[in-house]
Design a protein around this nucleic acid. Sequence first.
DNA 1: CTGAGTAATTGATCTAACTCAATTCACGGA
DNA 2: TCCGTGAATTGAGTTAGATCAATTACTCAG
Lengths: 249, 249
Amino acid sequence: MAMTQAAEQRYTKPVLVAINKPLDEEDSLQALRSHALFQSLRAKDLESLIQQSRRLRLGHHQLLYRQDMPAHHFFFVISGRLRLYRLDSSGVDRTLDSIAPGDCFAEVMIYADPPQYACYAEALKSSEVLMIPVKAYRDLLDKHPEYAQAALSHYAKRAVTRFHDLEIMTVQNARDRLIRYLIDLLPEGAEKGGEVELPLPKCLVASRLAMQPETFSRILADLKSNNLIRVNRSKLFISDPQRLMSISQ
Amino acid sequence: MAMTQAAEQRYTKPVLVAINKPLDEEDSLQALRSHALFQSLRAKDLESLIQQSRRLRLGHHQLLYRQDMPAHHFFFVISGRLRLYRLDSSGVDRTLDSIAPGDCFAEVMIYADPPQYACYAEALKSSEVLMIPVKAYRDLLDKHPEYAQAALSHYAKRAVTRFHDLEIMTVQNARDRLIRYLIDLLPEGAEKGGEVELPLPKCLVASRLAMQPETFSRILADLKSNNLIRVNRSKLFISDPQRLMSISQ
DNA sequence: CTGAGTAATTGATCTAACTCAATTCACGGA
DNA sequence: TCCGTGAATTGAGTTAGATCAATTACTCAG
């Protein structure tokens, strides 16, 4: 797709350049403390980890890393939003994941061998991320094996999520993939219905679900005309998830 | 698909019934010792874990567990082959993974909450698996946090694999998904070409790749007529992976 | 506030892949 | 070894979704 090839050109330059901003005045890192990977850490250890990290500010569409780059850091999103995507030889851009504040990404690099990024990561709007050295976290776990529990639990969850994502993609038709994707966006226990916000612009959700933007648009229009959803920009209201699911078969 | 609905009926009964076969005469468990999850375990601890486990013999098409069943065990494959699949409301059977001897599966259940299987598991031919209590392994890690390192590494690898599987499925056309799938089956460093064996019957590979068996068959026939592959039963010879990949675009 | 550039929508083809159907093949069990 | 049942293949017809094209609507930077 033209868009990302443009991005390719635009950001050939200095990926991973840190801003040496002090990290003491930390209200925005509150969320970090409650993340599964860090919540069991003693204050002192977390402090030290943060000291070794750098805060990065990313502009709209700015590239953070490329696929196959050696991976010396993983990331925690402080604010904004990012996406992970792959680019293949013919330049087709396939979106694989979107990442919200409070999430970690590329954290599997802590134990990857060889440690290199499996995809591109770019900011979808201006964002701030914490860039944590893989080595620092590994050293911490080596010194305090008891911290591994939380990490294990997090990794297991991650593997389950990816498995579930794969499951959706084995559904053979575009409409049903989209329906399942939407239902997964609903918060836990919203069987009565609710509003969901697309974590990506529509054309990227389409890419994530292996369909064309036109197809995405048409399916949404169709669901709308059948009163299965109400659409307002990137916000969708799903009144009856049961019925929506039953359409999917 | 009719097949698995039949399986549904055939095996309504006693899933997870163990055979109390002594596990001392262990040559076949050699592979277990070299698995990432167990290789760092001291002999005594591994012994104890095995003592708490049961060896299960599964017949052709026998169901091991169902999706949504509470998960008190995870599994190591001693011999044979299994597959993981989902069944949706309309009875469509979607294959998600195949598992070979030496592999573990459902091991993410060790840290899942709630611990319940995310899919069905059935033997593709007569197989033997070791059924390991989740609690036993957790207790072991609680007692010996130093063992967590290996587990973390394994889980990270698993997450990366799933991510890669997802990546293939975001490819929009059937032919290219199949080509990438085949190339991934090639052993590391077989750029010169080589033989791969399909880990599943063709109709299940088709399901895994979200296409119909007919489509799978036609694509294979087409690749064959273009001298891109040679087919012999479930064995495929790929003479020039580069060229195959370049067809895919 | 305004305009440029991208995203979203909608319409009109076209084609890859699905469906249905019929035949051949191969594997597992007796 | 043979037999039966499900797997694989091949053909014909249909359709979901891709592609191409044109318009409208947002978004963001100046």
